[in-house]
Design a protein around this nucleic acid. Sequence first.
DNA 1: TAAGTCATGTAAAAAGTTACATGATTCT
DNA 2: AGAATCATGTAACTTTTTACATGACTTA
Lengths: 190, 190
Amino acid sequence: MTPLGYALLGLLARTPCSGYDLLRKMEDPVGYFWHAQRSQIYPELARLEAAGLVRHTVVEQTDRPHKKVYETTEAGIAALRNWVAVPMKLPFDRDTFMVKVFSLWLVSPQQALHLVRSYRADHAERLAQYEEIGRTMERDWEPAARRFDSPKFASYATLRRGIDYEQGYVSWCDWLAEAIEASAPSESVE
Amino acid sequence: MTPLGYALLGLLARTPCSGYDLLRKMEDPVGYFWHAQRSQIYPELARLEAAGLVRHTVVEQTDRPHKKVYETTEAGIAALRNWVAVPMKLPFDRDTFMVKVFSLWLVSPQQALHLVRSYRADHAERLAQYEEIGRTMERDWEPAARRFDSPKFASYATLRRGIDYEQGYVSWCDWLAEAIEASAPSESVE
DNA sequence: TAAGTCATGTAAAAAGTTACATGATTCT
DNA sequence: AGAATCATGTAACTTTTTACATGACTTA
């Protein structure tokens, strides 16, 4: 089983969903730290069902296409629980931007600054979104968000990691932009 | 072309290397933020060569198998330079650990603490390695590491991001462990 | 003598992306 | 009338991982 399977199981363990619902939860930044397309989600749901970890019921709707609503089985919850508890090795991280930065010495300071500043702006924007969601959680979810056995606590914890990650990225971009400015002749940068 | 192609180009633009050399540079954490196996590297080198971005010469060695030493062509440097300068969209991040954390409410506080603490320890260990490399760079590379047009500056910048990333992860693990302790009855945690 | 390093590759399978394919309803 | 949302899937392709395959030399 892949992380995707466990991600879907983790969403279904909270709320029964259709494939389409899962898709929406995973396609935008709400699915912090995992993401998938429908071409992965639909087959993965079929696989989970074949393995007895989820089951579905068809819900007929008058005004819309009917949908398959999936929910976890006992075996599904057990499989998820077991997987969650097992420590994992550190993965190799991949960051395409760092591949660019590694060869930054090949471009002009102007180009480098443009690259770094535009990436910084994108991270700052995502950070603002996460912070907004964080404020909503803190407002609406207390005290459940502090209770370890609540899914809300788990959601809040992943969001916090997202916020920290984006803040860290933004700070690093600022450091890098300053370092570029400091090392290049000022007229050529401004 | 994939990030892997540009990563290899970026390494070869600094120093000509054999496939085996590239492999070693990318397989352990020294290749911060990108990683590949030989089953990807050898075919990718062939593809880069077919595209005219690298070329190789066979170096015969008496005591060891001979090797193919690759170097970038003018076209290879140009392609890399162009790619580096173009801003990129924010990617969707993937973090398997966050998939676990999202379902952390399903396990016991003891299991959760064990999971978080062991992951924290691994990140702290990687952080220590990065910091050690950073000290070496700061000692041996000044002032080249401050000059924007030096590859050493670029290496130092990626390492700094690695250090920040690991520090952030460690801090977040600490926050999470404390939050778990704070929400669970103390006898059940100790 | 067993394990490790140097050296190059291929094969098969899994995971992920992009594009194809359909169709009703609702909002602008 | 056109775009967006709801709804489910498949096909083709690319990328990545894991395992297979070979062989000489060096160190413990």
